[in-house]
Write a protein that binds this DNA or RNA. Structure first.
Length: 463
RNA sequence: UCCCCGUUAGCUCAGUUGGCAGAGCGCUUGACUGUUAAUCAGGAUGUCGCUGGUUCGAGUCCAGCACGGGGAGCCA
């Protein structure tokens, strides 16, 4: 394997004159009479290593196998580059073609691919400039998220992916079953008999780890989850996946103000980390994908977020003097167009909206004294809308029981959730961040399917 | 799931009033002593998404279906 020090990223930092060996895949090759240039990438950094092959240095039979997509081991001397694009380059004295790639059929070319085409080549697209940058940023972002919480004493909890309760009473869920679909056991009433199923009752893939995270918050004080989440909604948009990754911190002894403050610190910290550690990748996105991302990210990392209540937001929208497609009135949920107006036109930066009407929010959100609103918060970002959703949780047993009943949810399914409010209940709060939504925001990528390695969407689970 | 748009060479696309299937890039052959999406010259490459229909004749008109994109809803 390649050890630290052997990545292309490391080779760039070595002194001129060193003997080095590089491994990677050929991105492209240029020939002149007497000299060839090979762009070699191993994914460790945005820049390719330029390999220079002088006339006679390498056998023609070997060089014939050096084509776009082929994998190589190259040894030679690191030299200062007289060309403009790079400080150093590798003067090859030995090239081994590890795996060839037929130029007639290799799908990736030097330029001109659409995201849609590359999505169909998900097994090769990670070798491209764009997807190399996307997945390096994704990895750095994931690290920054763990670091942020670990440094603050948060416990990382692995909540289950298979669940027998419907966490929010909302959203279609994927069933998990070992029953024979061609021969389903039936109850006398004709319903499917899940008592003979693997878990003895109906099971699903989780739509959120929040309820289990609350259990851990009431034992470990501050916790967070970071794992995959599943929604079986038939959503066909550039912002939805059937399988995506979500981060859900949950804090005991915390109210909505603390929750809001943490969300803002969190976003600033992880954006700063990426700004400091992925400069070349971000420069590429800023140049080729969206020329506003660098200035936007720098602003978000430093400027204070706006905070308005739902009631204030509605008031702003009513005074906007604009004909929205969906009417604005107190009690209506904010639509995409309303969120965009607030973030892109009114404030031009992230906005945290709090205290939504009880009727449009989930049962577990803490009811305010006005009996009409709940301690909910949405962090809205320019261009992509809701990036974080969270709330202070209802910690009062009787109020929570009433809210579950009022929303028509089965009390018995929530027995343990209610029992947490009987034994040492404390005010607590948390939020959820969609990793892919955050990545879209950071990279400027327009389709969520292009910031996850292998997207799952309705009708598509290839790879 | 609803609305709109699209599907022509490996890729990105043009294709006029229904009348011989096109370009650029990629690939390939050659030229060129240092390129940066190299450049220059030549060459090959087609189930016009699928199934029907209209017509003397359909890439072009009509219908259905499939797939893709954008917008909406659901939401992270």
């Amino acid at each position: 394997m390649i050890e630290p020090g052997g990545y292309v990223r490391d080779i760039f930092l070595k002194p001129v004159g060193d003997s080095v060996t590089a491994h990677g895949w050929v991105k492209t090759r240029r020939d002149s009479k007497g000299v060839s240039f090979i762009q070699l990438s191993d994914g460790s950094t945005f820049a390719d290593l330029q390999i220079v092959v002088e006339a006679g240095a390498i056998l023609d039979e070997v060089l014939a196998g050096v084509t776009t997509g082929a994998s190589l081991r190259v040894s030679g001397e690191l030299v200062a580059s007289p060309g403009a694009g790079q400080a150093v380059e590798l003067k090859a004295s030995l090239i081994e073609v590890i795996g060839t790639a037929d130029t007639a059929t290799y799908p990736l070319q030097k330029k001109g691919h659409t995201m849609e085409f590359l999505r169909e080549k998900a097994h090769l697209r990670s070798r491209s400039n764009t997807f190399g940058a996307v997945f390096r940023v994704r990895s750095a972002l994931s690290f920054a998220i763990h670091q942020f919480f670990q440094e603050r004493g948060f416990l990382n909890v692995h909540t289950p992916l298979i669940t027998t309760s419907d966490a929010e009473g909302a959203g279609a869920m994927f069933g998990v079953s070992t029953l024979d679909l061609l021969n389903l056991p039936r109850t006398e009433a004709g319903q499917i008999d899940y008592t003979s199923d693997f878990f003895g009752k109906r099971a699903h893939l989780t739509v959120s780890g929040q309820l289990e995270a609350e259990i851990f918050a009431l034992a470990f004080t501050n916790v967070y989850t970071f794992g995959p989440t599943f929604r079986a909604e038939n959503s066909n948009t550039p912002r939805h996946l059937a399988e995506f990754w979500m981060i859900e911190p949950e804090m005991a002894f915390c109210d909505l103000d603390g929750n809001r403050a943490l969300a803002e610190q969190f976003l600033k910290a992880i954006i700063s980390h990426v700004l400091n550690h992925c400069e070349a990748d971000l420069a590429f996105f800023n140049q080729r994908v969206d020329n506003t991302i660098l200035s936007t990210l720098e602003q978000v990392a430093t400027a204070d977020f706006e905070h308005v209540t739902y009631t204030e937001a509605v008031s702003i929208l009513e005074k906007a003097g604009r004909a929205f497609e969906f009417p604005v009135f107190w009690g209506a949920d904010l639509q995409s167009e309303h969120e965009r107006y607030l973030t892109e036109e009114t404030f031009k930066k992230p906005v945290i909206v709090t205290d939504y009407p009880q009727e449009i929010k989930a049962f577990y959100m803490r009811r305010n004294d006005d009996e009409k609103t709940v301690r909910a918060m949405d962090v809205l970002a320019p261009r992509i809308g809701e990036i974080i959703g969270g709330s202070q949780r209802e910690e009062r047993h009787d109020v929570l029981r009433d809210k579950i009943t009022a929303q028509g949810l089965p009390l018995e399914e929530y027995w343990w959730y209610l029992e947490l409010r009987k034994y040492g209940s404390v005010p607590h709060a948390g939020f959820g961040l969609g990793l892919e939504r955050m990545l879209m925001y950071i990279t400027g990528m327009k389709n969520i399917r292009d910031v996850i390695p292998f997207p799952r969407t309705p009708g598509d689970a290839e790879f």
